[in-house]
Every structure is written in C-alpha cells, then in structure tokens.
C-alpha cells in the first residue's frame, strides 16, 4: 500500500515555482531515494511534502488522506518525521533533551521509545548528557535521526543524512537506515552519495530542474547508462 504520494506538485519560495510538477510515491516498507544535481529542488520537495514550503498546485496524500499544505505540527501528529539537511539538532541542548523534545507531542512515558533509539544508536546512550552542538558531524546526524524516531514514525524523511561524513560513517549510516526500515518504517531520503543510496533503495527518483527525470528500482537506475553518465558521475 502506498504510504505517501505526491502528485504533480508545484511549489516554490517566492514568485517562481521551484518544483514544476513532481510525482513521488513511498510504500509502507520501502526505502525510496531522491537523487539529482545540486539545486534540482530535492530539499524543496521534502519541505513541500512536510508543509514548510507552500504547494501551489497538485497534492500530497498520506495513507489515503489529503495532507497538502498542512502545518508541520499536523504531520508529526500523523506519524511523519523529517530530518532537514542542515541545522538538524538543538545545539545548546543535551542529547537526551534533543530526544525528549522529539517526543514533545507524545503524552505518557517516553522511556520505551528512548530505549529503542538507544538500541539503534548505542553511542547516544553513552553521550546522552553531551551538548549536541559540540558533537562531531556523525554524532549530530545520529541525534537528528534519533530525535525524529522518537515519535515512532511510519514515514521518516531524511535530507542528505550522510553529507560531510567519512566513508566509514557513511556506510554505518546507511546500515542504520536499513535497520530503521526493517522496523517497518518507510524511508524517503535525499542523497548525494547516489550510488550507495540507490544500492540500499527499493526505488529511486532522479530529479532535475524541479521535475522527475527518471524513476525505477534502485538496481535498475544504477544499471541505466543515461542515469549513470548524467547523474551518477559516469
């Protein structure tokens, strides 16, 4: 069943539309990857889905319900979590506080959720009293994903989770994302490390100039010579 569907979405910041009719779909147990050149509108697409950039035409459906242009608060309440590309932790707050705030909308005991996040990212348990702002890029990314997981989302949206990480940490991050997906969480992810990301993806989209260029299964996109030369650096 389809978890998320974006249909013919036009959206942008000012007068001009950055997104010019994009279409996306994420199934409930899928990892879906969006790749494409810088400035293609990948981050804008994520923001538009999450209600942070106004959609002027087209619509977004989540488990069959129209959620076009709903505020982020409502997205969170429905079980969609989003980790933006930049500034994705609360720097002056501790790791634990970052995670607690992730569960702000949850009433009741959050300890079981916290335990689950610590299971996926044991490093966060060790460093729970640490201020998030002074941590390494890799650790901050874990805090950011941990924060998002605190609502026990059905859909996790990640914007370039491996940006700026060392090759070893990139591998580890993709491994964690597979584990998260194995828990039954749909993942929609923008990635610059396109080959690796498509390697773990069920399906992928190539976005350029604010529109869909290619879409296929991960392996098929990797094998497509057009995609390889144009978007995956040969």
């Amino acid at each position: 069943m389809s978890l998320l569907t974006a249909q013919n979405v036009y959206a942008g910041y000012g007068e001009a539309d950055i997104l010019q009719g994009i279409n996306l779909q994420v199934g409930g147990d899928e990892i879906v990857v969006i790749v494409g050149p810088n400035g293609a509108g990948k981050s804008t697409a994520m923001k538009a889905i999450f209600g942070l950039v106004p959609i002027r035409q087209g619509h977004i459906e989540y488990v069959g319900e129209d959620i076009t242009n709903q505020p982020p608060e409502r997205m969170v309440a429905r079980g969609i979590a989003y980790v933006p590309q930049e500034a994705n932790v609360f720097p002056s707050l501790s790791v634990l506080e970052n995670l607690e705030l992730g569960a702000y909308s949850i009433s009741g005991d959050i300890t079981p959720r916290l335990e689950k996040v610590y299971e996926i990212f044991p490093r966060l348990r060790e460093r729970r009293q640490q201020q998030a702002g002074v941590m390494s890029g890799g650790e901050r990314q874990m805090v950011a994903m941990g924060r998002a997981l605190m609502i026990e989302p059905r859909l996790l949206m990640l914007d370039e989770p491996t940006a700026g990480l060392s090759p070893r940490l990139i591998d580890e991050t993709f491994e964690r994302i597979r584990e998260i997906n194995a828990l039954g969480i749909g993942v929609l992810m923008v990635e610059q490390n396109a080959r690796q990301a498509l390697g773990i993806a069920n399906r992928g989209y190539v976005l350029a100039g604010g529109a869909n260029r290619h879409e296929d299964t991960g392996p098929a996109l990797l094998a497509d010579p057009d995609v390889a030369t144009m978007f995956l650096g040969g």
Partner: peptide
C-alpha cells in the same frame, strides 16, 4: 536554539 527545527519537531 533553532526555531525552524522546533517547528519541524511539532513543538507548539
């Protein structure tokens, strides 16, 4: 700390 992230996190 981070107004935008607070919004994304669902803080009212």
């Amino acid at each position: 700390d981070n107004m935008n992230l607070a919004l994304i996190t669902g803080i009212p």
